[in-house]
Amino acid sequence: MSSVAWGRRLLLAAAVVIAAVGCAESANALEKVRLLIPVRNIDEAFSPFVVAREKGYFAAEGYDVTLIAVGGSNESAIQVSAGNAEVGAASPGEALVGIQSGKLDIRYFYGLYYSNIWSIAVLPDSPIKTLAELKGKRLGVQSMGSAGTTFGRAFAQAAGLDPEKDISFLPIGVGAQAVTSVRQKLVDGVIYWDAALAKFKFSGLDLRQVPVPENLRSLPDVALLARNDTIGKNPKMLTGIARAVAKGYDYSMANPEAAVLITWKAYPEAKSKNPDATAALKEGVVVNQARLGIWNTPKIGDKHGLLIDADWNRLIQFFVDQKVLPAAVPVDRVITGKFIEDVNAYDRASIISDAKKEDISKLQ
C-alpha cells in the first residue's frame, strides 16, 4: 500500500474515531433526570411522558430522562423531597400534609389534572341515582389508603350524609377481583379513578357514574413537583422537562392512536390483551383520552400547566374540611407559576402537525 493510501486510511480512521467520540460526548452531555410517575405500571394514560421521551422532546431540551414508576403519589413526593429524584408527578393530599408540617421540601410547578380523577359508579340497573341514596351502602375502593376513600367521604358529606355512619368502604383491589366483587354485589358501588373505570368496561363491566357536585369534581389533582432548592437553582431543567411534557400532551391529543402505540412499544405490559388489534387500539385510545380530557380546562387558555391559585385554595380547604390537613397552608408554599410562560414558548402548531403526519402502521 502506498504511503498516500495509508495516510488516507489513517485520516479516515481518525475521522471515524472523532465522530464516534463526538457522538458519545453529545450523548453524555445530556443531563440525567429522574422523573417519578405515581403508578406501579406506566400505561397509555401517561402517554405525554412516554411520547416526550420517545420522540426526543426531553433530549431536545438537553435531558436524558428516566421515567420511574413508583407506588403512588405519596411515594413520589417523599422520594423527590429526599433528593432521590429531580421531578415527580403526584396528587396532592399527603404532599400537602408534608409541606405544611415542613417534612417535605417540595412545591408544585406545573399542573397536569384540572379535575380530580375519582368517581362513584354503580351497575346500570342500580336504584342509586343520587349521592343521597348512598345511605347505608357499601362502596368498593382499591384499598383503605386510597384517595378514593377521601373523596367518597366528601361526596357523602355533600349529600348531607355522615361518612362515618351512613356509608362503609370495602377494599376490593383492582382487576378481576374488583370486577367480581361488583358483579356478585359484594358492594353497592365503587369509587375508582377514570382509567380504572374505562378498563372495567373492557372487562365487560359497564358502570354508570353517579353525579357529583361540580365544586368537588373540578378540584385540581396531579401536578409536577420538585424540591424548593431545585426550583431556585435549576429553573432551566424544570422548564425544559415541563415543556417536553407539554409537547407530549399536544402530540397525544393530535394523534392519540400513535401516542398509545408509542406507549405500548415502550411498555409492552400495558398493551390491551384484546386479540383484535383494531379493537385493542380503540380501547387504548379510550383510556388515553379519558385521562387527557382532564389535562386541560378553559380556565388556562393556551397556557399548558398553569396552576390556578383560586382552585388550589379550594383544594387546600377541601383537605382541611376532610381533616386531612389540620389547618390551611398558604398557597404560595404549595405552588409556583414562575416557569409557565417559558414552558409554553415553543411552536405548538409544528408539534401538532408532526403528530398528525405520523404513520401509525409503522408503530404497530
Rank of each mutant, 00 (worst) to 15 (best):
N288V: 15
P298N: 02
L261N: 09
G148S: 09
P163T: 02
W6L: 15
K233Q: 13
T239V: 11
W295H: 13
Q317R: 15
G284H: 10
D342R: 13
G232I: 06
D276T: 12
S91F: 09
V179Y: 08
R291H: 00
R138K: 15
K323V: 02
Q209Y: 09
E283M: 13
A176S: 12
L36E: 06
A19P: 00
D125R: 14
L96Y: 03
A121F: 10
N215P: 00
A242H: 05
S2L: 08
A69L: 10
V70R: 05
I340Q: 00
Y192I: 03
F319H: 07
R107D: 00
F318W: 11
S26R: 15
A156I: 02
K185S: 15
F46A: 10
K323T: 04
P124L: 15
P268W: 04
D206C: 09
K32N: 11
A45W: 02
R138P: 01
V97M: 12
P268S: 00
Q317E: 14
K236E: 08
S353T: 15
N274D: 14
L134Y: 10
L363I: 10
Y114G: 03
V320Q: 06
S47L: 14
K233Y: 04
P298A: 04
A349S: 13
P127Q: 15
G93D: 03
N215M: 03
W295T: 08
L325F: 08
F339H: 04
R107M: 08
G175A: 13
P235W: 01
R9N: 10
G93R: 05
L363M: 11
S126V: 12
S81P: 00
K32T: 13
G71S: 01
V320D: 07
V212Y: 04
Y110N: 02
H304R: 15
A270C: 12
K135N: 05
I68S: 08
R138H: 06
F169H: 03
R183S: 14
P268I: 05
V182K: 08
A59M: 04
A310C: 01
K199R: 10
I360P: 13
N228S: 05
A327F: 10
V287Y: 04
A45F: 02
R217A: 07
A280Y: 08
E31G: 01
E164V: 04
T180K: 13
P275A: 09
N28Q: 13
V17E: 02
I360C: 12
R291E: 01
V286F: 01
L12Q: 14
T336K: 08
L363S: 06
A242V: 11
V187I: 12
L170S: 07
F151G: 07
V174R: 09
L225T: 05
V245Q: 05
D105A: 06
P326H: 07
K338H: 00
D311N: 13
